[in-house]
Design a protein around this nucleic acid. Structure first.
Lengths: 204, 204
DNA sequence: TAGATTGTTAATCGATTAACAATC
DNA sequence: TAGATTGTTAATCGATTAACAATC
């Protein structure tokens, strides 16, 4: 397949989320105009983005929502369920382990790790907290490729290194710190302070 | 001041985070080369971005980290502490209310709200959970401009409307749903599934 | 059919990079 | 001084938008 710009790929999950919402409102079809307004991009961009992957609409009537959802899920490879692990069971790890929002979006928490002896063996969100020492082997054996990192920032790079050693290819990092990863390993950041600081510039 | 592209503004918090990290390692100076490698952008882009706001470096020696941190904090208006509110005290709201990572990054949780009668009056992270019915007035009286939204998706738009009515200008939305806000109100999303779906496209 | 809306092309716009004089 | 690195300009690259023929 053609090489698709990452900026386009990164918008598809947002389109998918909006379409799922429309579907939950029992809506059957939408247009590039409507979807664009909903997610805050131009209609032309919606059409251009989607056209990278095929022809999913009909002139005059727009897009069938169920069909477009199906296609986007295939494109994004979330027409399956990926096992993900959570490393770190502080408040944030706790919240993620119990998070219900992964359902129908392609992900399932499979295992939860911590290195704190007083937490290992305890339960969180239905998972037994496993010893971080056993993490690399457990990831390898389960063939897990995705990890969510909620350890303290001082430990984040070291844990990331272990994840990579274990074969993890995608890391969602909650620690407020830039991580260094080799080519072929992907990284996304979820740092609330960054989100807020992107807005304060415009305040007052 | 000149109109700065948002894409540049959005990178500044990442630079700032990296500089803070370097400083915590007792590093005194850095170069556009080094900082760029650290955060994953080109040295030219670092210099171009910073040059929008002034001349902060010295030829031959690079940037004084403490000085550049000071300047970036001023630019991003996080050389002060912003009061933010948390709406919704589920697991995620809980984690945010107790989050220590806002310290020194310009934010402080000031109030916490929920509409669940069994939670109102209880404590979370040292805050008494206040009745969401009193939220609009409380925000107005305190002059709060920033809110973090961790309510269920079905309630998110409605709560966002109340926040906007109360004068909130910046919303960090944890609910996995696109919100509609009027011009002048800023919005950032922290949806873990979106982050993960931006990576699965490239997996396997 | 008439109206609506797609997919695509070409034009525009904006962002990134390369290169280098200036200078610490 | 020699080496390093900035700030900035011009060139390149890439993304977005406008427009419209095609067609449902």
């Amino acid at each position: 397949m053609k090489n698709i710009p990452n900026i386009i790929v990164s918008r598809l999950p947002v389109y998918l989320r909006a379409l799922n919402h429309m579907q939950s409102q029992s809506q059957q079809t939408t247009s590039s105009q409507e979807l664009g307004e909903f997610v805050g991009v131009s209609a032309a961009q919606i059409r251009k983005d989607l056209s990278q992957f095929g022809e999913f609409g009909k002139q005059g009537t727009g897009y069938n929502i169920a069909f477009l959802i199906k296609k986007l899920r295939e494109i994004l490879k979330v027409d399956r369920v990926w096992d993900v692990i959570v490393v770190g069971t502080g408040d944030m790890g706790h919240a993620i382990a119990r998070y219900q929002g992964f359902t129908n979006r392609g992900f399932r928490v499979a295992m939860v790790f911590d290195n704190n002896p007083t937490l290992i063996g305890k339960e969180v969100g239905g998972f037994v907290i496993q010893d971080a020492k056993t993490m690399v082997n457990a990831i390898r054996e389960a063939g897990i490729e995705i990890a969510m990192l909620t350890v303290p920032d001082t430990a984040a790079q070291e844990v990331a290194n272990q994840l990579i050693e274990a074969g993890v290819k995608a890391i969602l990092n909650y620690a407020p710190i830039s991580l260094s990863v080799p080519p072929g390993v992907m990284l996304q950041y979820l740092d609330p302070s960054i989100g807020l600081q992107r807005m304060t510039y415009y305040l007052e």
